Structures are given as C-alpha cells and as structure tokens.
Amino acid sequence: MRTLIQVLACLVLFVLGSCEKESFYDGDHFFIKNAGAEMPVFVKGNIESGVFILFLHGGPGGSASLPSFMPVSKELEEDYAFVYWDQRGSGLSQGNPDQATFTVDQFLEDLDLVVESIKLRHNSPRIVFYGISWGGALGSAYLSTGNYQEKVAGFICMDSGHNLLEGIPKSVVFVKEYAQKQINAGIDVGYWTEAYNWCASAHDMTIKENYFKYDAYLTNTNAYRKDPNQEVQGPEVGALGAMNSYLSLSIFFNGGYLRPNFNVLALNLSPQMAKIKIPSMVIWGRHDGVNTIEMGFDAFNSIGGPDFTDKEMVILENSAHEGYMEEQPLFVSSFRRFVNRL
C-alpha cells in the first residue's frame, strides 16, 4: 500500500510539473547552429500581431533567456511577439565555439541568421530591434553594415555600449566620483580610497586587465540602479519554475568564458551609425554609470547623422542602467508608443 501511495504521489508531481512546464514552452523554439555555436531562440507573446521584437541582450556574455521571465517582458508580449536569442557563448547557448569566433563580424553573421529564420518561419513579419547595453552596440553594428537595415522596421537602443573607447573612461570618472562621495561619508574609507586612487591614475582602458579591475569597483557602485534599495520586479520564475522551464545553471556560467575572450574595449561605432536610416528611439537612464548619459546623447546624435529626423530620445530621469525595471511604466509606455507608430 505504501509503495502504491508513493507511486501515485510521483505521478501527481509529474503531472503537475508537466502542466506547469507547458506554460513556459508556449511559442516557437528553435536553435541557430553556426560556426561551432548552437544558440537557442525562443519566440513568445503575441505572434499574431505580426510585429516581432528581437531582443539583443547585454554583456557580452549576458542572456536573453532569463529576461524572458521579466514582468516587463510579459506585459509587452501581450502586444507583440518577442524573440529571445542567447548569443554565442552566452546564456543557454551550447556547442563549443572557438575563441577565434568571438568577433563582432561573427556576431553579426549569427544575428542575420536569426533575422532570416524569423522571416522564413513567420511569413516576413515586421522586425524591431530592442538592444540593451552591449545589445545596443550589436544592433548598431548590424544596422550600419551593408543593407542589413532593410530587414528591420525600427531600432530601440537602450543604454548602449556602442562606443566603449570613449564611454569606458567616462564610467571610470563615475566610479571615481562615487568613491569620493563614499570617502566623504566615512563609508568603507580604505576600500574607496583604493578605488579612487586607481581610477585617478588614468589607466589604458583598452587593456583587459585594467577593464576587469575597474569593473570590480563599478559593481559596488549604484551604476546599475540609482537606488539599490528600490524594490523592483525581477524574473517571475522560482525554483520549481526553473526546474520545469528551459532555464539551467549554464545561464550563470557561459558568459564567464566569453567575456575574457572577446575584447571589444576599443569599439567605436559612432561614426558608422550615421548610416542607420530607420526609425529609432534611444532610451537612457540619466544616472547610468555603466554607459553614462553623455554616451546616450552620442548615440542619439550618431544615429542617422545630424540631418536625420526620424529618431527620438527618452531620458529616464530616475534610473541608472536598468531603467526597464526602475521606471517600468514610463519605459513600457515609451516602448509601445514608438513601436505602434512604425
């Protein structure tokens, strides 16, 4: 009898798990295989809308799979289809891509395969790029290369790392000024004095070792959240959801291999972004310490050049790098307004 109860309990758990699993898997899921990488693509949301938002995640080495569980994503999926693609060496990507494939050109080739696959699988819908941080840089590079932009209806560029050559030194200044405020407030004076002195030494930020040193200080500032204590809505997936969804522990480890082997520290796409002639919206957190507001104005001014008018800039006045969480209502309304006019 006890054995029978155990078997029935296992069956109940299996059925419940299977039912919950289905809700995570609604949509179109496939892999892009290219140059040693096997990259998952998850299409969710309002596929019937004919508008597909291709999300370009940050990093390099971030993830699109985890943001697909964000409340802001679910809200926007009511209106549009969202395409979540984990780039090579990132998120839930598989395969064994060689370090030699970690180049901007290779990422552009991968991205174009995603675009073409969406067009083939879904009857050539309108595709809108939505790139955050490194994703904004990747979108900028794609749209300013050849005739690629003819395949895309619009571009949302958020807190972009499109010009790290000029942008990272500005972020170093942000860290230095933050360190000074901590010293003045008597907070962890030893650590922040060390940070201040290092940032004041004008290191060459195109050298990876210097970048990672600065980045360690940066993560201890409020560069990502203006108010780190603000309650925000994170990914809506708990332990049971993670077990029954497509998430796995690899989401936390893949980027650790990509980041030190993909050097984009001298990247400067600003000059070539004048080639972008599709409707664009630049969204930036006023207090972003990763890619500072100066780089937001640089992105806006660079897209299409000085005479291009089909572009707009939205500044999130109470946000840092993660404005999609810090000021979600304004972000969502700006997003919808832009996409709906395309």
Rank of each mutant, 00 (worst) to 15 (best):
S65L: 12
F155E: 10
I127M: 02
K119G: 12
E177C: 08
I127K: 00
S117Y: 12
I132W: 14
E78M: 13
E77K: 04
G136M: 05
L120G: 15
L113M: 14
G61C: 03
S90V: 08
A153G: 01
I47A: 07
K74Y: 09
S133F: 02
I47C: 07
S93F: 07
I183G: 05
F55N: 07
K74H: 11
K170T: 10
T103D: 04
I183K: 02
E150F: 08
V172Q: 02
K74A: 13
G91W: 03
D105Q: 13
M70D: 13
L138H: 00
S93P: 11
N96L: 12
T101N: 10
G139S: 01
N147I: 15
G186R: 01
E109H: 14
R88C: 11
L111M: 13
G59S: 09
L165S: 09
P169T: 05
K176I: 09
F129V: 07
E177R: 01
S133R: 03
S90A: 12
Q94N: 14
G61M: 02
L165C: 13
D98V: 15
E77W: 05
Y148H: 15
V173A: 09
Q87R: 06
Y178M: 02
S171K: 01
Y178F: 00
K74M: 13
N46H: 04
I187V: 14
S160Q: 01
Q106H: 09
K181W: 04
D86I: 07
G58P: 04
D110K: 04
V115R: 02
S124T: 14
S49H: 01
Q182A: 09
Y84N: 05
L56D: 01
D79V: 11
N147H: 14
L76W: 01
W134R: 08
G135A: 05
G95N: 03
Y178W: 01
P169Y: 00
Q180L: 13
G139V: 06
Q180V: 14
I183C: 08
S65G: 10
S65H: 09
Q87Y: 03
L111Q: 11
L113V: 15
F155M: 11
Y178N: 00
Q182Y: 04
M70R: 12
L56K: 04
V114I: 04
E78Y: 05
F102H: 08
S171P: 02
I53M: 09
A64K: 05
F174L: 08
H162S: 09
G146I: 13
Q182D: 04
I53T: 07
H162L: 09
A141C: 14
P67E: 02
S65M: 11
F174E: 07
G131S: 00
A137M: 08
D79M: 11
Q94E: 15
Q94R: 13
S90T: 10
I47Q: 05
L113G: 14
G146W: 08
E150R: 10
A100K: 12
A64F: 06
N163T: 12
I118A: 10
G135T: 04
S63E: 05
R126E: 14
D105R: 10
F129E: 03
Y80P: 10
G136L: 02
N147K: 15
Y178H: 02
S73M: 14
G45N: 01
